[in-house]
Design a binder for these strands. Sequence first.
DNA 1: AATGCACACAACCGCCTCTAC
DNA 2: TGTAGAGGCGGTTGTGTGCAT
Length: 314
Amino acid sequence: MGRPPCCDKIGVKKGPWTPEEDIILVSYIQEHGPGNWRSVPTNTGLSRCSKSCRLRWTNYLRPGIKRGNFTDQEEKLIIHLQALLGNRWAAIASYLPERTDNDIKNYWNTHLKKKLIRKLEIDVETEGESSLKRRASISNYQSVTKGQWERRLQTDINMAKQALQEALSMEKPSFLYEIKPSCSSHSSNNSRSPSSTYASSTENISRLLQNWLRKPPNSSSSSDRANSAESTQISVTANSSTSVGKTVSFGNDKRSSIVSPETCSLFQVESKPSLEPELHFSQLETWLFDENYVGGTESSMNMLDLALDESELF
DNA sequence: AATGCACACAACCGCCTCTAC
DNA sequence: TGTAGAGGCGGTTGTGTGCAT
């Protein structure tokens, strides 16, 4: 059994955060940096539990978060990554630096899942199947996404890793030995060892992809890279007309608060660390988005096939 | 105008992993 | 080596909002 909830203490506030609470939290993190969440409620006077503070920061207040509609590219990327990684939202989010895992999870649950089921319905219809078989197919899909997902995920990861290693060994075997300590996303301040399932799967895949992309079959143009970098820039907006400080816009939230100029540099540093491989991101996108991608190796195509071909796995 | 419904998303909860002691 | 605690993740719930009736 897990530990008792940390937030069932009397006097701990729940529910939506107020702008005042946001300002207090942002100001504190601006001064001390994120982390040591346990001490945040005590030091700020916020009547919130540490978890709530952390979630509020990571899912809402953290700079660089893009809000609003998901683009087609993002949508395709999520679909492909979900097929490859399963419901590892944090891992998926590491490929979308501007989106939080919570956002992606919500988007998947509210949009993409329905969309895929609808697509499946249409596919079955066009194949002229009976309505009975259609219903069976849909319910099968739903049960698969729920119950067998874990098993399938591990299979996916193992097969993807194997295929990728083969691809890499064909290109340049030493790539596999260039794997460096954590370079992505949430792991920057998370010292999980490589022995954990999470670290040994998604992170390694990420690293392998990056290593592979260091010597891509067709190197991407500098403009692509510029676009990629541009697309991942953080959304802290400096208001030159503000004499005291700068205006930080919290996503599409109408609210804004005044923070000191140091905020920007702090935010840039704290912004999602997975920006490092951004120069490779456009090519990764190409690989992930284009189901008929011909620029990669045969093995990389196999890998994509493995991730996308539902029927082979069931 | 009132009500009901569906949707989107922020926030919470329970569990897991890792680390420090 | 065992245990407690902190941080992190994924699933689920609650609530606000927009639309249809």
